Computed example of a mutant assay.
Amino acid sequence: MGAGGTVATTVARCSGSRTLTVGVEEEFLLLDRADGRPALSAPAVLALLGGDPHIKAEAMRYQLETVTGVCTDLEQLAEELSRHRMLASRAAEELGCHLVASGTVPRHPPGLSALTADARYHELAARHGLVAGSGTCGCHVHVGVPSRELGVQVLTRLRPFLATLLALSANSPIADGVDTGWASRRHRQWSRWPTAAPPRAWRSAADYDAAVCHLIRCGRAMDERSVYFHARLSPRYPTVELRVMDTCLSVEDAVLMAAMARALVCLAIADAARGVPIKTLSDRQVVAELNAAARHGLDALAVDPYTSRAMPHRALLEHLLPRLPEPEPVALLIDRLAGRGTGAARQRTMWSEAGTPPRFAQLLAGATLR
């Protein structure tokens, strides 16, 4: 049975109907089979796929992005994620490279010389220099919301949970040919973007729009699409878009992140309707928790926004699960992640076993299709 079937079987019995839709964008690397270095093969892979609308170019020619449709249940989502990964992987294999799900390039990326031939990417590079050529890969989860006003309330209530989402998804310990000591080296690199920051505690959609317009006017963003808040109102869809996560090593990891993101949005909407108070964290506290999660993963400390107690993210998840409107699918997927380890932990195991960069790339490619 393929990866999609395995995950679908896992979640189908506990992922009943949801009121909120979910969609996922995943970014991937292409690594050369011969030496494990970035392979500038994305244009050829896309040509081989014949214009599949679910598989697209990314900023660098060694990157691809896959996009699911609007999904209503986790089984459907798992099947789409698995299918897109398999299609892109087979095309990459025909061209002598691996499709790899990792937040950072394991061996020295080539920089801006590998930029995709697209006017938008070249303008971003002209504005922001080498940060535009970092070649990091994220997982972006879109959750449908009834209105932008409610979406802004959701963003405020998501602030205390952004570090937990990052800790769960952390999948980039290896960069520049070494174990960096970070669970998510990607977060450290991505945070160099001038707009890669937590959402503020805005009072209304008008306040949110004013903040976006200010960033564009002062030159920190080219347009609304390049305002890269860790969670934002999507500039294209009626969704809250959570962008803080590393791209996920396996399909099941990605399904977990989508389930967790949607559950947190559901919880935020329910709490807002009931007037449930939540601890207000300063921007500095949110950033500090994100940096700790990027370094230490699930072992990092965070403040429970309901009790104000500090605890590791592992414990915070145990306290959080009973509060979720429908905790079963998330609880099952978290339990399975605890058994296999986070993406960062599994990457470190593969790194120690691989011996050579090509073998490491091969192991990552295998894990990407699970």
Rank of each mutant, 00 (worst) to 15 (best):
residue 81 L to W: 09
residue 209 D to R: 13
residue 3 A to D: 14
residue 149 E to F: 00
residue 213 C to L: 12
residue 153 Q to D: 12
residue 241 E to C: 08
residue 277 P to T: 13
residue 113 S to C: 10
residue 97 C to D: 02
residue 155 L to Y: 05
residue 267 L to F: 11
residue 206 A to V: 14
residue 189 Q to W: 10
residue 28 F to I: 01
residue 94 E to L: 13
residue 190 W to R: 12
residue 46 L to K: 07
residue 178 V to P: 00
residue 14 C to V: 15
residue 68 T to P: 04
residue 292 A to R: 07
residue 251 V to W: 05
residue 51 G to K: 09
residue 120 R to P: 07
residue 324 L to E: 03
residue 211 A to K: 00
residue 200 R to C: 09
residue 193 W to L: 15
residue 245 M to L: 10
residue 357 P to L: 09
residue 4 G to F: 10
residue 303 V to H: 01
residue 15 S to Q: 05
residue 235 P to Q: 07
residue 200 R to M: 04
residue 14 C to F: 05
residue 49 L to S: 09
residue 223 D to W: 05
residue 362 Q to H: 11
residue 259 A to F: 09
residue 295 R to E: 09
residue 348 R to K: 09
residue 304 D to V: 04
residue 213 C to M: 08
residue 49 L to K: 04
residue 277 P to E: 13
residue 52 D to M: 04
residue 128 H to D: 00
residue 130 L to H: 10
residue 346 R to G: 01
residue 13 R to K: 11
residue 309 R to Q: 10
residue 63 Q to M: 13
residue 5 G to F: 09
residue 185 R to D: 04
residue 280 T to E: 14
residue 53 P to G: 07
residue 230 H to F: 08
residue 11 V to N: 06
residue 34 A to Q: 08
residue 354 A to W: 08
residue 108 H to T: 14
residue 262 R to H: 12
residue 59 A to Y: 12
residue 186 R to K: 11
residue 222 M to N: 04
residue 100 V to P: 11
residue 2 G to S: 14
residue 189 Q to L: 15
residue 247 T to L: 00
residue 348 R to L: 13
residue 188 R to S: 10
residue 87 L to I: 06
residue 315 A to F: 00
residue 58 E to P: 09
residue 86 M to N: 03
residue 327 P to T: 13
residue 129 G to P: 10
residue 75 E to K: 11
residue 337 L to N: 00
residue 361 A to G: 10
